[in-house]
């Protein structure tokens, strides 16, 4: 049989996204209004930024559950150092350095000490937020320069594009190129596909994973900065629970939880799909329980569908090559 399956989860999620947009705009008055679209983009900005790092980690076969806590710690450090007289640019750098350091510690514990990333990052999920609590306690800092808070909240000129979007786009393009067009990206995929074969291919798996953990931490730091300015608030309980949304978005975008498979545009589509569905249901005034149920079903489908599609695809190709 010459028929060849070219249908992948990444492409189907794009189709799904378009379908959701069409249905949503038909069933609500203002889904595609500029304000709502702008809302969707800015509501998902931290998740997207964190997902850019986490996708690399999941592809190598690891996971990071601590990203939302890193976000909170970076946010707290930003607020604390600004409140203690640091110029804003320095406070921002401190926040990102703290984020990177958190990621590095995760990576070190996982690779050098040899602990499982699930266990390590459950631990640091509590630890990093605990430190954030230690720094700010129940205080919130919400005095920031207007230029920066505007940057987190306003749109560009009179358009509907949030000011944070260009940053996301730049990071998105950068990380997409890194994953798909560089040796580093190829090695990331290779490690997830077979850590043993990666060693025989001359890849320094430990070093590679530490780098990926570190820039995941860095991206969580960036997300912390954006979050802080978007809500004009630095506090220890910023972003509670976001880690699950980040991981959901990656899985929804076709990244395999077993490692070795994933595309950047799949993840971007995944984030937008989750954000769009959420927005659609909100506009339809569907209550929170139902929104959660729909999100859950979407996620289960996203985990099951790529597995089933890939199985069917592999069987087809195998039949072809072995005949």
């Amino acid at each position: 049989m010459k028929f060849k399956l070219r249908f992948t989860w990444d492409t189907s999620i794009l189709i799904l996204l378009v379908v959701v947009w069409i249905l949503a705009s038909l069933t609500t008055d203002n889904f595609l209004s500029s304000i709502n679209v702008s809302q969707i983009f800015s509501n998902t900005s931290e998740i997207t930024i964190m997902a850019f790092g986490v996708i690399f980690l999941i592809i190598t076969g690891e996971i990071d559950l601590s990203v939302a806590s890193v976000l909170a710690l970076s946010s707290s450090m930003l607020g604390w150092s600004y409140a203690h007289g640091a110029p804003i640019w320095l406070a921002i750098i401190i926040a990102m350095v703290v984020g990177s350091l958190c990621g590095f510690i995760n990576g070190f514990l996982v690779t050098k000490v040899g602990l499982g990333s699930l266990a390590v990052t459950i631990g640091t999920l509590a630890l990093y937020r605990g430190i954030a609590n230690g720094i700010l306690g129940t205080n919130t800092i919400n005095e920031f320069p207007e230029f920066w808070t505007g940057f987190g909240f306003d749109t560009i000129g009179t358009s509907f594009i949030p000011q944070s979007l260009p940053i996301i786009v730049i990071f998105g393009i950068g990380f997409a190129l890194l994953l798909h067009n560089t040796p580093f990206g190829r090695r990331t995929l290779a490690i997830g596909q077979s850590p043993e074969a990666a060693r025989f291919a001359g890849i320094n798996v430990v070093k590679h994973k530490i780098i990926v953990f570190t820039f995941t931490g860095f991206m969580a730091g960036v997300a912390g900065v954006i979050y802080t300015f978007r809500f004009s608030t630095a506090q220890a309980d910023n972003g509670v629970g976001l880690e699950l949304l980040v991981i959901s978005a990656c899985l929804l975008g076709g990244v395999s939880i077993f490692g070795g498979i994933g595309t950047m545009w799949g993840v971007i589509a995944g984030v937008l799909l989750a954000g769009s569905v959420e927005s659609w249901l909100t506009l339809r005034e569907i209550n929170a329980q139902w929104r959660t149920i729909v999100t859950g079903i979407l996620l289960l489908t996203s985990v099951a569908a790529p597995v089933l599609i890939n199985k069917a695809k592999a069987a087809k190709i195998r039949a072809g090559n072995r005949s």
Binding site: T182, P183, R186, L189, A190, Q193, S194, E196, A197, A198, F200, A201, G202, G260, I261
Partner: peptide
Amino acid sequence: QQGLFMIAGVDRNIAMESFDRLK
């Protein structure tokens, strides 16, 4: 287990050690 990345394409596998000349 050691020689190949089984789920990756033939092209990806062959290219694996030749990045210096491919970039």
